[in-house]
């Protein structure tokens, strides 16, 4: 552990803290000043006094928590100075608005990636690697068994299933922010132009994506009555996974239950969720992309916020890289 890095960033129970700039990044408890990487609930929490984030992330937080989620908010520019620390945003390729936060002070640069992905995503800008001295990474899928297939092949599997069972509605579980819109866009890109039905919990976030110029196409609320639901042909319905436990799903006769998640790569996980059609579609880096990113960014040291840090530490040992697990509590495994 070289001491100078600690003037730039230190892990604390409430989250990563920048002493020089006196702010936290993605804190899990209420703090005075927070910089937020993206709008997922475990990273963007309610109750901070002042929040700095990309405009889209602020908008998403306002949609989820109400306009008064913090006392003051500030839309981040691509570059700014906070208490003498230069702070810049770089796309993370995770969800709409997601950014890596780069901070520079005394000639040292640290990059906090938040959650990120290297696979082209039609709902957000691609990840931009930023060379740095300290790279802070997630490790959600940091095991060499996680090598996600291209999302296009997974969507092709979904469409093949719709062809095979046209009279069974296909209900696809997808997290409300990011995954749902990505699945919709992937379907559109695959040429599926029929109306897509969405659960009520997705409505406002889908509306926001449309406002932001993401062409999701014809979306209909999945609030039809039982007779209508059972008459549907070739129907695809997107819903948050929690909806499958609710009475809402009872309107469909013999549906095919699918789930779009990186976890679907592990059969036991898919079975546990009662999934008939597992779709391996992830908004996080898989093992090859994660290790490739660290090689590209080539930091003097990297820190691991959460996930399967043991395997990544082993990789660091094998490749002679300096690494440190932070065991930050409060970030979830791909909160489905």
């Amino acid at each position: 552990m070289t001491a100078p890095l600690e003037t730039l960033l230190i892990p604390r129970p409430e989250g990563l803290y920048c002493p020089a700039g006196d702010f936290h990044i993605d804190p899990v408890r209420p703090v005075d000043r927070a910089v937020i990487t993206h709008g997922h609930a475990d990273h963007a929490r309610v109750g901070h006094r002042a929040v700095l984030a990309a405009q889209q992330t602020l908008d998403i937080m306002a949609i989820r928590y109400g306009a008064d989620f913090a006392q003051t908010t500030q839309a981040a520019d691509t570059e700014q100075t906070v208490n003498g620390v230069r702070l810049s945003l770089h796309p993370a390729g995770h969800v709409l608005g997601s950014c890596q936060i780069a901070i520079e002070h005394d000639g040292l640069r640290a990059v906090v990636s938040g959650d990120y992905s290297r696979v082209a995503n039609p709902v957000c800008a691609p990840f931009a690697p930023v060379p740095c001295d300290l790279f802070v990474t997630e490790a959600t899928f940091a095991l060499p068994v996680f090598r996600h297939p291209t999302p296009e092949t997974e969507i092709a599997r979904l469409l093949a299933s719709v062809d095979a069972f046209p009279d069974r509605a296909h209900l696809i579980g997808a997290y409300a922010l990011g995954k749902a819109q990505r699945v919709i866009m992937l379907l559109r890109q695959a040429g599926y132009d029929a109306p897509i039905y969405i659960h009520g919990a997705l409505q406002r976030l889908c509306d926001y994506h449309l406002e932001q110029g993401v062409p999701l196409g014809d979306l209909r609320p999945a609030t039809m009555d039982k007779a209508e639901a059972r008459a549907l042909q070739r129907a695809i319905v997107i819903a948050p996974p929690s909806a499958f436990a609710s009475a809402w799903v009872q309107r469909f006769a013999d549906p095919v239950i699918g789930m779009a998640s990186g976890w679907m790569q592990i059969r036991a996980r898919a079975r546990q969720r009662g999934v008939e059609l597992p779709l391996i579609i992830s908004d996080h880096v898989d093992w090859p992309d994660l290790t490739r990113t660290i090689e590209e960014v080539d930091p003097a040291e990297f820190w691991i916020t959460h996930g399967r840090e043991d395997a990544l530490m082993r990789w660091a040992e094998l490749t002679q890289r300096r690494a440190r697990p932070l065991h930050l509590v409060g970030y979830e495994d791909d909160p489905e």
Binding site: L143, I266, R314
Partner: peptide, 15 residues
Amino acid sequence: VDPELFAMSYDYVGD
């Protein structure tokens, strides 16, 4: 594959 990485993976996947 590195045996340690394999062991961690097997432990996680279970099959």
